[in-house]
Structures are given as structure tokens and as C-alpha cells.
Nucleic acid binder design. Structure first.
Lengths: 144, 144
DNA sequence: TCAATATTTGGAATAATTCTAAGCGTTAGC
DNA sequence: GCTAACGCTTAGAATTATTCCAAATATTGA
């Protein structure tokens, strides 16, 4: 990544954090950069492992704290696809997740325009989470 | 519940279990009846508590086993709405879940006909999970 | 009825997340 | 710039959710 992008990213991060009442910290910067770098919907544990390669003293509690701050300030989504660890996704465009029940990988899938669910009176929707379970192309070919 | 309904339910349960290679047991019957009785999307823990009122010796491991069997034989859905315990839903009609971020209750919401997501080539969908986060009617009225 | 095999049970083990207390770093007011 | 207030990080303990295990029991098919 070049310096311009880097600066732009940090400016966005800093602004979002601040307007949500959070502080900009090296740990949050690092965790956010990691999320953007490899968009494979890692769990907190996986983020922790990646983070330690560059920042060996970072703790698990901090990783949770950073991820939660990113979610709360609108720069990442938390995805709970199945029993077990939550995953994190920095793609904030409207999209849904395809979870391969065979290989357990997660794919971002675009949503058709106008997708939405009419709600009964009184409900106020804040966000939609759409998950599709099935087989990804690699696992579709007759494999168990 | 009257005897006719009761028998019909058990017949359906027994058949579904058997065709999926499971056995029909009193514990599974009881857990299924509980799910149908109070459709408030309980966690395994909550099912355990309710189950013990009638069947005091049932164990947590059995509750998990029964719930998993019900999910696998197509009589219940497992719902993972957020970090934390999975919930269970015996409504197998096409519907989605509304989760109130304030009071944490879950509502079944009908889906519009033809709702679906076009998938890239090679993906094979098995099921859709749609969750909407927001405020339910009771929590919408200006409350924090 | 018997044998084979699935299920149940309680408890231990593991996984995922949250909490806690102490120390540190930033920021705002002076 | 100094200081108080407060948010953040850390390690580790605690809690929550789920899975695993081995022994006893129940169910099914022959």
C-alpha cells in the first residue's frame, strides 16, 4: 500500500473513531489495516494471531476491544454464521455472506437492488444480515 | 393440546427422525414439544431449564443432542443472531428473524415471495438466513 | 429374547468471550 | 507545560457456550 492510501485510511479511521467517542490508537490502526489487507472474514482469534506478527505485545482483550470499536463506528461488520466464533468483515457495501458448509469459507455476494423485507408497523430496522448456506464452487463438484 | 394433535406431532417427529437415521426417544419428543409450545426462540440453556420441569434428569448434553437432531431432520432451525448462545426455532415456513437490539427479543417476520439472491456460477445454495436488527414496536418509542 | 448400536448421563474439557485491576497515554482545563 | 480525568492496553482470571468422554441404558432389528 502506498502512503497516500495509507494516510487516507487513517484519516477515515481517526474521524470515525472520534465521532463515535473512541480514541485513535496504534492497536486500532493496526487491526483495521489487517482486516482490510486480507478480507477472508477472520475470527477474533485469527486477527489476534495476525496482529501479533507486527505487534507482539497486543493482547486478546485489546483485539476484541478494537474489533468492537470498528463495528460500533461503522467500519466493519460482525458476522455470526454458525455456532462458534464471530467473524469480522470490513466490506461495508451492501452485500451478503455465502458460507460453504463443506470448507467453511465465506464469500461476499452482492445483493440485488431493492432487496428488503416489509416490516409490520412499529418495527424499525437498523440493518439486514443475509447469510446463505450451501456449497461453494470448489466444493460443489460431487464431493462429500 | 389434544390427543389427536399430539399423536400427529409424534408421528411426524418419529418419521423425520427415522428417515434421518435418528431414533425416537422421550427426550427428543419432549424437547420438540417444548419448542412448539413456546415459540420464543430459546437458547439451549433455556430449553434445558424448561425441559427439567417435566423431566428432571435430562442433561444439558442431551438437550444439545436433541436440538441438533431436530435441526438435522428438518424440524427446527438454529439461529445465530449475535455473539453468544444459538437459538432454536421450530417454524419451518419461509421467514426471517427480527432481533431487537434493545430488548433482545426475536420475532418471526414473513418474507416477500420471490425473495432470493442471484449467486455467481458454481455456488449451490441450501438455505437462506435473513436477520434484521433494529427496534421492536415496544422499544421504538423514543426509549434508550 | 439377543445382539448391535444409538442415546443418555454427569462431569471433564475446550472454546469463545467478558471482566478485572493496574499501569499507561491522551486530552482538556488551568 | 502541569495535572486531573478518563479511555486504552495488558495479563490473567472468570464466565459462558459448547463439545467430548466413558459408562450405563434404551431402542431396534433379527
Amino acid at each position: 500500500m502506498n502512503t497516500t492510501e495509507h494516510l487516507a485510511r487513517n484519516e477515515r479511521l481517526s474521524e470515525r473513531l472520534t465521532t463515535s467517542g473512541f480514541r485513535f490508537t496504534p492497536q486500532r490502526e493496526h487491526v483495521y489495516a489487517l482486516l482490510l489487507q486480507k478480507r477472508d472474514h477472520p475470527t477474533a482469534e485469527e486477527v489476534f494471531i495476525r496482529a501479533k506478527r507486527v505487534m507482539p505485545d497486543i493482547s486478546m482483550a485489546t483485539v476484541y476491544n478494537c474489533l468492537d470499536a470498528l463495528v460500533k463506528c461503522g467500519l466493519a461488520r460482525q458476522v455470526t454464521l454458525e455456532r462458534g466464533a464471530a467473524r469480522f468483515c470490513p466490506n461495508m457495501q451492501e452485500h451478503c455472506h455465502f458460507y460453504c458448509d463443506n470448507c467453511e469459507s465465506v464469500f461476499d455476494i452482492g445483493l440485488p437492488a431493492g432487496a428488503g423485507v416489509p416490516l409490520p408497523k412499529g418495527f424499525r430496522a437498523e440493518r439486514f444480515d443475509v447469510t446463505i448456506h450451501g456449497r461453494c464452487p470448489a466444493c460443489s463438484n460431487g464431493k462429500k
